[in-house]
Design a protein around this nucleic acid. Structure first.
Length: 265
DNA sequence: CCATGTACCTGAAGGC
DNA sequence: TGCCTTCAGGTACATG
């Protein structure tokens, strides 16, 4: 389940090999994956740069964009030969140089949009969680006076983009905040603490090349390592590393939610 | 404004 | 072994 750190790792890898490459062919194996807003295929265009906003990958093709959301099981593999896995292959891009960019997606939830209009995709997407402009004061202004529980807020991409279920639970643990806490019952001091813990959680996961629970792989097919450093996610029934209490699992905002009943208030 | 439920999908895991 | 149910979670959309 790629969230911001996993997507960032993928973008960095794609950036190393794709800029300058010219698209020569595209083969769509699952039609719903590719949403074309342009009325012509993205052939003959060069990849200028690759960027990210929240969980979206943006391939810039000089005023045109291929924007990808991997959802749960999307994967990019860069391939230089003609032998590759066919199972779950949804879209195959060929480049003039002979390089292939393969998009796999077991559950078919991911989307690749071809468009000229970035705003169409991003109109309901908030500031990136690692945008330097997201200062703790701005974080506080965004979050205060809301009436929802903190978990729902952090998962809602229209406020802050990039946080998914894993890093939401991890960040709340690190900040000592119960995931079901009402936002307006959290002190300013703890909001600041949460801002820092989100930042730390995302950055340290990136350093570990992301979290591989089941599907996430880097573009070379490698695994992340951050699953070995999680404090609460996927640890139901196991002891808290800080206080030895048993990690609980409940259902919040429609998601499995892990927390330490002693450390998080 | 906020919460809940369903649809989209497949594969893994657990129960019997 | 094998069938059936449940669960996994990101997002869009409908409904209360």
């Amino acid at each position: 389940m790629p969230e911001l750190p996993e997507v960032e790792v993928i973008v960095r890898e794609l950036k190393e090999c794709l800029p300058g490459e010219e698209l020569s062919n595209i083969r769509i194996e699952w039609h719903k994956t590719f949403v074309n807003d342009v009325n012509e295929p993205p052939i003959g265009r060069k990849i200028i740069d690759i960027d990210r906003k929240g969980k979206y990958i943006i391939f810039c093709l000089d005023q045109y964009y291929l924007i990808t959301h991997l959802r749960m099981t999307g994967q990019f593999i860069v391939n230089t030969t003609n032998s590759f896995e066919q199972k779950h292959l949804r879209v195959k891009f060929n480049f003039k140089s002979g390089l292939n960019l393969l998009y796999y997606d077991a559950r078919k939830f991911g989307r690749i949009y071809f468009t000229q209009d970035l705003n169409k995709i991003f109109k309901n997407i908030g500031i990136d969680a690692l945008d330097p402009e997201l200062t703790k004061e701005k974080f506080f202004r965004l979050i205060s006076n809301r009436n929802s529980i903190i978990k729902s807020y952090l998962l809602n991409q229209k406020f802050i983009a990039g946080i998914g279920n894993i890093y939401c639970d991890e960040s709340l643990f690190k900040a000592g905040i119960h995931p079901g806490r009402k936002i307006n019952k959290i002190s300013k001091e703890n909001i600041f603490k949460l801002n820092d813990s989100i930042h730390d959680t995302l950055i340290s996961s990136m350093k570990n090349m992301g979290t591989t629970i089941s599907d996430y792989k880097t573009t070379g097919g490698g695994f992340g390592n951050n699953q070995n450093y999680l404090h609460v996610y996927n640890r139901e029934g196991e002891p808290c590393f800080i206080c030895n209490s048993i990690i609980n699992k409940i259902r919040l905002a429609g998601r499995g939610t892990y927390f330490c009943p002693n450390c998080q208030k």
